[in-house]
Design a protein around this nucleic acid. Sequence first.
DNA 1: ATCCGAATCAAACATATGTTTTAAACAAAC
DNA 2: GTTTGTTTAAAACATATGTTTGATTCGGAT
Lengths: 208, 208
Amino acid sequence: MSQQTRNQIIRAAEVLFARKGYAATSVREITEAAGVNIAAVNYHFGSKENLLIEILDRVVSPVNAERLKLLDELEAQDTPSVEDVLSAFLFPDLRILDELRRRDPELPRFVSRMYSEGSEFMSRVKGHQFGEIQDRFLAAFGNVLPHLNREEIEWRLHCVVGIVLYLFAGVDVPGVGSLAGPDPERTLTRLLNVSSPMMSAPLPVRED
Amino acid sequence: MSQQTRNQIIRAAEVLFARKGYAATSVREITEAAGVNIAAVNYHFGSKENLLIEILDRVVSPVNAERLKLLDELEAQDTPSVEDVLSAFLFPDLRILDELRRRDPELPRFVSRMYSEGSEFMSRVKGHQFGEIQDRFLAAFGNVLPHLNREEIEWRLHCVVGIVLYLFAGVDVPGVGSLAGPDPERTLTRLLNVSSPMMSAPLPVRED
DNA sequence: ATCCGAATCAAACATATGTTTTAAACAAAC
DNA sequence: GTTTGTTTAAAACATATGTTTGATTCGGAT
């Protein structure tokens, strides 16, 4: 079966994209690392760009699906707390972060890179992937944070996203450990512990 | 004077690096946008990589210098608050963010890109640039947050950095405005309003 | 006016890039 | 055993890349 070649390419490309970025990684590097022929990428994926899209999709789609499932469960039963909604938003990320890191320590950077490196077309992919997520969670946060307007909630949620992306990026300033510790449970606890007061903080008093 | 050619190259390269990333931007694009000869980059800067270093330095150094100056002033007088230290950390970023945005709306992304796109050698640059900053501010936060150990403070400060980087990255998910509004003062207010409770939050109770 | 170093230019260099091609190898079905 | 469709292989393709060269232009000091 040729599925093996596909997977080898994907595995090699993920790590290289994470380590060097999409633009700086050549098809030759990918195929050599994967131990397959140079033409395999174009044969199996059509183009280097398609390969990127497929890789991105494979990692992002399950995460967002899990997010929506958790939120559904949350809203099905009783009235959730801020921590509950935050947890539904953050937990899938930490799960995939841990999974990626087990596969390769540098792999999580792939996610954060795609957000910075993204070109025009990558923006469309993101909009498609995260449109529903955003709507659903903004509504959910609106219910548990009635003292904040939608625009403020949106702004703060983006702060959370910023932290999460930094989590995936890891830290490469020497002498500093990563934001994400070895224990995902503990990282979630810490994340909730700081992001919850951040989301819940009262509006500043406007002095006009 | 040839200083003009240098500046034209820098200005063009900044925007292109911000828009497309370093690796995806060619020297030809830069020189064409700058209206100078193709050889000018190598003549004036030695290499494309040197050009990047110089650009990065010109934007990061003043910011960190201002940070240290504000912190010095703060520690010279009376006992500062969490907001004070946070403000000294964040204000220079917002100033440069505003300045960059005035020059070109896409320019701020340059900063965030350099953090994700960075290769091995870029890591050394960062370590050199931010080593002192980190030490000084960790100590300052340690004084105003006596209930937190150094490791926790470091972790939370990195959360703040994550938010700031997202600030510079802007948001390119369609239908969503940027984290940084048009008014830097207001952005600082909002930032302090959420990051202050985040930094000050009590430690979670460990249930062992 | 002349000279000299600095700056610009067009052209070429060597190499790396993503992709395509053509043929060979392979596996399964008949 | 032959045939059919799919996968791999080596080579070539066309182009884009960062950089260098050598001639030319320019500006200010002698």
